[in-house]
Design a protein around this nucleic acid. Structure first.
Lengths: 151, 151
DNA sequence: CAAAAACCTAGTAATTTACTAGGAATAAAT
DNA sequence: ATTTATTCCTAGTAAATTACTAGGTTTTTG
C-alpha cells in the first residue's frame, strides 16, 4: 500500500465528485480550480480512475465526470490503488532467498501490517466521508478560516 | 500522512531491531543484509530515527542499535513520521482562499480521513506486531516459501 | 460550424528516493 | 598503541516518481 500526494489528489477529486456530481457532471476544469491541481494531471489521474470504473466521463459541452458507481461502493483503497500502482509488499518475491527465516519474518510482519492498513482503507467509502460532514460542519466562510489548520 | 517505501524500510528495520535487539545491539550491516537496503541509506534513516529517540546507537566494535524505548511504546505512526517528514494535509493553509466553502469542504473531509489513518497507525505498536507472529507462524524455511506471495 | 468538454501522447521540470563515496569519532580487541 | 568495527556525518548523484506543459483528437451540444 502506498499513500502519497498522488493518492491524496485522487481521493480529494473523488470527494469533489461525490459532493457535486449528483445532478450535473463535474468538469476537470472545475476540480482543477477547486483543488489547485493542474488540468492535465487531473486528466491522467482520471484516465486511471476511469479504467477502473470509478468514474464515468461525458464528452462535449455540458459534459464532465460522474462517479462510476454509488459513493457507498467506492472505498478509499479502490481510489488509491487505481492511481498509485500497487507496490509489492516485500522484496523476497522469488528472486531473493527467503529461507534464512530472519528476513522472511520481518517481511511477513510487514505483510500483515500492510494488510491491516489496506483492510482499514477498504472499509471506508466515499459516502461515509460525505455523510460525516453533516455531523460537524466546520470551516465556515468566516474570517477565522485561515487558522483552522494550525495543528 | 504518507506511506511510502521509505516508511516501509524504516518500519521493517525497526521490526528487525525489535526481533533481534533484545540482548545484543543490531548492526546496520546486518539489517542491510537481512533486508536488502543499502548501508548508507540505512544510516540516513537511522539518523532520523535516532533524532526522534526511537533508536539508540552504540559505537565501536560489537556496537549497533537498540530500540530507544520499549517496543510497546513505539507506534508505526511514530516510525513513519520520523523518516517521512510530515506532509501537510491540505493546500489551503493560509495562502489560498478557503472561503468559497467548496474547496474547503473536500479539504476538511480529507483532513478527517488522514486523521483516521493516522490514529489507526498510532494504535499499532511494534510489540503487537511481534507478538502476533507467535500466533500464526508461516513462511517456514521450506521449498514452498517462494510462492507465498502469489496474491 | 463553433465551442466545450473528454480523451490521448510525448516530453520535461521538480521532487523524492535510494544510493555512492569519503571521511571522522568512538570504543573494543589484539 | 594500533587496528578494527562500528556509529556518525556530509556532499554528491543516479533513478524513480510526481506534477506539469504542450499539443493534439474526438465527441457532443448549441
Amino acid at each position: 500500500m502506498r499513500l502519497s500526494t498522488k493518492g491524496r489528489y485522487a481521493v480529494t477529486a473523488m470527494l469533489d465528485l461525490a459532493l457535486n456530481g449528483a445532478d450535473n457532471p463535474v468538469t476537470l476544469a472545475d476540480i482543477s480550480n477547486n483543488q489547485g491541481i493542474s488540468l492535465s494531471y487531473l486528466e491522467q489521474l482520471f484516465a486511471a480512475l476511469r479504467s477502473k470504473g470509478l468514474v464515468k466521463g461525458v464528452r462535449g459541452p455540458g459534459g464532465g465526470y460522474f462517479l462510476g458507481k454509488p459513493a457507498a461502493e467506492i472505498s478509499i483503497a479502490n481510489i488509491i490503488c487505481a492511481v498509485d500502482e500497487w507496490v509489492e509488499f516485500t522484496r523476497c518475491r522469488g528472486k531473493q532467498d527467503c529461507h534464512s527465516g530472519q528476513r522472511c519474518l520481518t517481511h511477513s510482519l510487514w505483510d500483515d501490517l500492510s494488510k491491516q492498513i489496506f483492510d482499514f482503507l477498504t472499509e471506508i467509502n466515499l459516502q461515509e466521508l460525505v455523510d460525516k460532514r453533516d455531523d460537524h460542519k466546520r470551516c465556515k466562510p468566516t474570517k477565522t478560516t485561515l487558522d483552522h489548520q494550525a495543528a
